[in-house]
Design a protein around this nucleic acid. Structure first.
Length: 729
DNA sequence: GTTGTGCGCTTTTTT
DNA sequence: AGCGCACAAC
């Protein structure tokens, strides 16, 4: 079979990786080195050259988006649908395994997934039942504790004994939480992974079956795997040893949520005959950008070592703008984008990156001001919105009434006279009798006064209305199409009605979202799904595992705003890396709790810089308003790690002494006074544009251009000779 | 059951 | 500063 079409587009290192003999393979793929191409080509190669059946391939990614893209690209490469190939996120694959073998995994057939919100509620409930005060035991921290242990594969009984009373209490909550979940067949995200791991570990027959089936396992973003994910992979390839792992230690930025870069080192230890291939040729950035990024990452001590190079052109030097404050920073960045657009560039080719989401605001304000379209990534996604979660809770309750988080969520939404007191009583009754809340509600309504808990008449009748409502919905949606089921539920529950009453645009948006849910369901039904679950069950699982895109993607040409973490894996011709200030980036928190955190920040900086294809702008503000108060900043240490000759500093005013004392050579545009006597910082009047302040001067004599920030129009570049300026009164 | 007030916190994000 | 949350008053 002719497989040249797979190889044609690859360089030597890529080819070596793609065509390597089966066995453990570790691909260290630098930023922009064609990582995804290698991964997809490998799959295509296995199928075409080695006649490997798609059925025996398992490919794992971290996000649903990445899975979809990978499947699409493989299918494109092979020209055939790859329906039989298992490809998905760790969580979705684990879910699939658990659905198929729920009995072996000790789960009821209708087990439900808890998202982190639901998990938090469940933890709060555990705290309450154990009589622990939430202010001493912050639920978030308990959640962190529980997930941390699960991600390390530890059940409560595996956590090392400790005399620390605090540890013991946390452990007690962990145990209690676990028993609650088990009792009602609820599974949180980390549980999904842990259960799937234990399923294979403890069940020899199943383990053998999947080890035989998946002859080839491939993982993307291997540096982001946590302990349990790696353990699961190891178990799967125990026999075949055919694990193809692609990752980049320099792009490991999720250590704070349990990812273990060390897994890359362990890999070579766990599989002694591992073949390691380095992909070091970068196809994305100019030499200037790459050199600057390399200079930064070189400061990390714990690296496997890798040096990215490019055959591309040198390009423009990386530029640094020192802003007065965050507004000046925003103004400058957006002026540059404006200029880019004026030269024919697209807005969507530009990205503004920042360390923390709070920084987006200043940029947004400015963008709105100049009327430039933009899109902010991050924030609540579709399935995370309150109204959507309400609707899903109704559906879940109809599907599996013992789902307590859903019960609590909608028992009084819209309000129907079931207050806290009543809910507490139901919860307490459930606890005493080891029942779900749904079961409790039913029993309390029928068998009068069991267990000494007595509902008032009013509460009882309100609760009865709710129980009846759920039963009615259940009855009405039987035998209906998925989207009709949702429509019926929305109608009977009066959810739409409820949000319509909500004042303002917000209520309007919520109603829209609910209608969108119906549309989403319609679309979902048409897709072929990989499981053979009832549509509603399948849809609900899908909703838990995939949060959905931010906004419905308007394909308008707009500036992209996102955090550095979100930018990983993306690329843009023009990139602004903003807020390079000590305490902000690297973040204060990382500086405080040491142990490798700073190196992770540096990797984050590296990730940010390597997003840029043609031009990279760095910026920081000398004064930044944060949490209400103004703070004088000092430039990020990462800036001083870039050699002077690779960076060009541009400033709006004469440099002051205290910053970047090391960088003296290349102040290209620090010209602050023009021969005519006009200088930066001077207030001037323009006959047409009015009053403004000079913020930048470029060039000399009659060719000089001058940038003025007009009080009414914002900043503009003018040719000084024609500007006809006069000193402001 | 809804509405108002005061307090505390504030990195990054996926599933 | 701004938001979300918990509790108190209507």
């Amino acid at each position: 079979m002719d497989i040249s079409h797979i190889f044609n587009e690859l360089n030597d290192a890529q080819r070596e990786a793609v065509a390597a003999q089966p066995g453990p393979l570790l691909i260290l793929a630098g930023a922009g080195s064609g990582k995804t191409r290698v991964l997809t080509s490998r799959i295509a190669y296995l199928v075409e050259a080695h006649q490997v059946s798609p059925l025996s391939i398992l490919a794992v990614t971290f996000t649903n988006k990445a899975s979809r893209e990978m499947r699409g690209r493989v299918e494109q490469l092979l020209g055939i649908p790859m329906g039989g190939m298992w490809i998905g996120t760790f969580h979705s694959l684990a879910h699939r395994l658990l659905r198929q073998h729920h009995e072996d995994a000790g789960l009821p057939p209708g087990f439900q997934i808890l998202d982190s919100d639901d998990q938090l509620r469940m933890i709060k409930r555990s705290l309450k039942e154990l009589d622990l005060d939430e202010s001493y035991w912050p639920p978030k921290q308990v959640q962190w504790f529980i997930n941390g242990h699960k991600e390390e594969g530890r059940r409560p009984q595996h956590v090392p004994q400790s005399n620390d009373p605090q540890q013991q209490t946390l452990l007690a909550v962990y145990s209690h939480y676990e028993s609650l979940c088990q009792r009602f067949g609820l599974i949180d995200f980390s549980e999904l992974l842990l259960r799937a791991f234990e399923l294979l570990k403890n069940n020899e027959v199943l383990r053998a079956r999947y080890q035989d089936r998946f002859q080839h396992v491939l993982v993307d973003e291997f540096q982001d795997t946590n302990s349990i994910q790696y353990a699961w992979l190891k178990l799967l390839v125990q026999r075949s040893k055919n694990l193809f792992a692609v990752g980049d230690d320099d792009q490991s930025i999720y250590g704070w949520r349990g990812a273990k870069v060390e897994n890359i080192l362990l890999f070579e230890k766990d599989f002694p005959d591992t073949k390691t291939v380095r992909l070091e040729q970068n196809y994305r950035s100019t030499t200037s950008i790459l050199n600057a990024a390399n200079a930064v990452i070189e400061n990390n001590q714990t690296r496997l070592g890798k040096n990215l190079w490019t055959a591309g052109e040198e390009g423009e030097p990386v530029k640094l703008y020192t802003a007065y404050n965050e507004q000046d920073e925003a103004r400058f960045v957006i002026d540059q984008i404006q200029a880019w657009v004026n030269q024919g560039g697209a807005r969507s080719e530009t990205a503004i990156l920042y360390r923390s989401n709070a920084q987006s605001r200043t940029f947004e304000e400015r963008l709105i001001n100049v009327g430039m379209p933009y899109r902010v990534y991050g924030g609540l996604r579709f399935f995370e919105r309150a109204e959507i979660k309400d609707a899903l809770a109704y559906l879940r309750l109809c599907e599996s009434p013992d789902n307590d988080p859903s019960f609590e969520r909608v028992v009084n939404t819209p309000t129907r006279g079931i207050g806290n007191k009543t809910v507490d009583q139901v919860r307490e009754f459930a606890r005493q009798n080891q029942l779900s809340m749904w079961q409790s509600a039913n029993q309390m309504l029928s068998g009068a006064g069991v267990g000494g808990i007595q509902l008032t008449n009013r509460a009882a009748s309100a609760l009865a209305v709710f129980v009846k409502l759920i039963n009615t919905i259940k009855e009405q949606i039987r035998e209906q199409d998925l989207y009709q089921q949702i429509e019926i539920m929305l109608d009977l529950s009066k959810l739409i009605e409820h949000f319509e009453k909500e004042k303002g645009e917000k209520g309007q948006a919520r109603v829209e979202n609910l209608k969108e849910l119906v549309t989403a369901a319609r679309g979902y039904e048409l897709e072929e799904t990989e499981d053979d679950l009832p549509p509603l069950t399948s849809f609900l699982a899908h909703a838990s595992l995939e949060a959905g895109e931010g906004q419905a993607e308007e394909w308008e040409d707009c500036v992209q705003l996102m955090s550095l973490h979100t930018a990983k894996g993306l690329e843009f011709p023009l990139v602004f890396l903003t807020g390079l200030e000590e305490g902000l980036f690297p973040h204060q928190r990382s500086l405080e709790d040491g142990s490798g955190r700073l190196e992770e920040e540096r990797r984050l900086c590296y990730v940010g810089m390597t997003r840029a294809m043609q031009q990279l702008w760095l910026s920081y503000a000398e004064v930044r308003r944060l949490y209400g108060s103004e703070k004088y900043t000092s430039p990020s240490r990462f800036l001083s790690e870039i050699p002077d000759e690779l960076i060009q500093a541009i400033r709006p005013k004469p440099k002051t002494v205290y910053e970047t004392p090391s960088r003296k050579s290349t102040w290209v545009d620090d010209q602050s006074t023009h021969e005519s006597g006009i200088s930066v910082g001077m207030a001037v009047t323009h006959p047409k544009f009015g009053d403004g302040m000079v913020i930048n001067i470029e060039g000399h004599g009659e060719y000089a251009r001058i940038q003025i920030n007009f009080s009414e129009l914002g900043s503009k570049w003018l040719v000084l000779a024609y500007a006809n300026l006069s000193p402001a009164a």
